[in-house]
Design a binder for these strands. Structure first.
Lengths: 151, 151
DNA sequence: TTTCATGTAACTTTTATTGTTACATTGATG
DNA sequence: CATCAATGTAACAATAAAAGTTACATGAAA
């Protein structure tokens, strides 16, 4: 896996854990599913563990498990746990801040970004891990749920 | 300038052009203001030229000018001209799409991102280049305008 | 026709991310 | 208690994206 974000990697792993609720999955197994490296899996899931979303056990039959039902894990929680922003960085180099124009560009954009972050977080709160899992194996009577718009 | 986005570079350049309406500014002069390279300036402003936001003239006394009043240039237009997304990429590697879970993660996130893009664009439409310029040299009676929230 | 500017291609450097190796740590199990 | 199997983490290598640089063609004005 070359060009993916940690967020979608995390979601992918979480859905796998959700679909295998009876046994823990090792980083090695997950790495095969995600086409990446076990250490990368541990790095990403480690952050979700610190946030109380998954649990890890060592030793025989150890591995990773979901700690909560998928319907109670929102994408907002996942993305907050990763400490990642959905928005690109727009600030300039620290050296530039002497210029008043740079400062005001940073200030205006910074306010905008902070505002937008909150807005996006509120929308991510409405999508759960279960929503993704259901779309992966759609129920016959509810073939396409999709993201909830304009709610 | 090492770690900055093209968008804030563009905004910074545009404010400089706005504050010097009588003469064209060369990429070399702008590069000094922005602490970067003339070619980088030309690359960024070239996209704004294609979008009709700035004009470039060659030869003696040539350089860059704003083609419209700053109050009529919205940040949405600028960011659209750069063909850049404010949101990070979340898709996985093309090789992964065989997995149904990856497809549904991509699908859910893709819908979300598209939705969010539209939302952010609508908000950027409300901020103009003039808003940034006024904050850089605040008017005594309106010392701090800020970004228009919740309007 | 000389000069000064943009336009652009090609390449180098830098930075961030991801992948990898190696090893310490911890818990179950015989 | 020794062993095996897993996570935890540090350190390093490889890769990709972004920015910086050089070089030169093109066009407009004096």
């Amino acid at each position: 896996m070359k060009r993916s974000s940690r967020l979608s990697l995390a979601l992918h792993a979480l859905v796998h854990l959700h679909k295998q609720p009876d046994a823990a999955m090792t980083s090695a197994t997950l790495a095969q599913c995600l086409m990446t490296n076990p250490v990368v899996v541990r790095r990403v899931l480690g952050e979700l563990r610190d946030a109380g979303i998954v649990g890890a056990t060592k030793g025989h039959d150890g591995g990773w498990r979901l700690l909560r039902p998928a319907a109670e894990i929102s994408l907002r929680q996942v993305y907050a746990a990763m400490g990642e922003s959905l928005l690109i960085r727009t600030e300039s180099d620290p050296g530039d801040i002497a210029c008043g124009i740079v400062r005001s560009v940073n200030s205006v954009m910074g306010e905008f970004i902070a505002d937008a972050e909150a807005l996006l977080a509120a929308r991510l709160e409405r999508v759960s891990l279960d929503d993704i899992a259901r779309q992966a194996t759609p129920h016959p009577l509810h073939p396409h749920q999709g993201v909830q718009h304009h709610g």
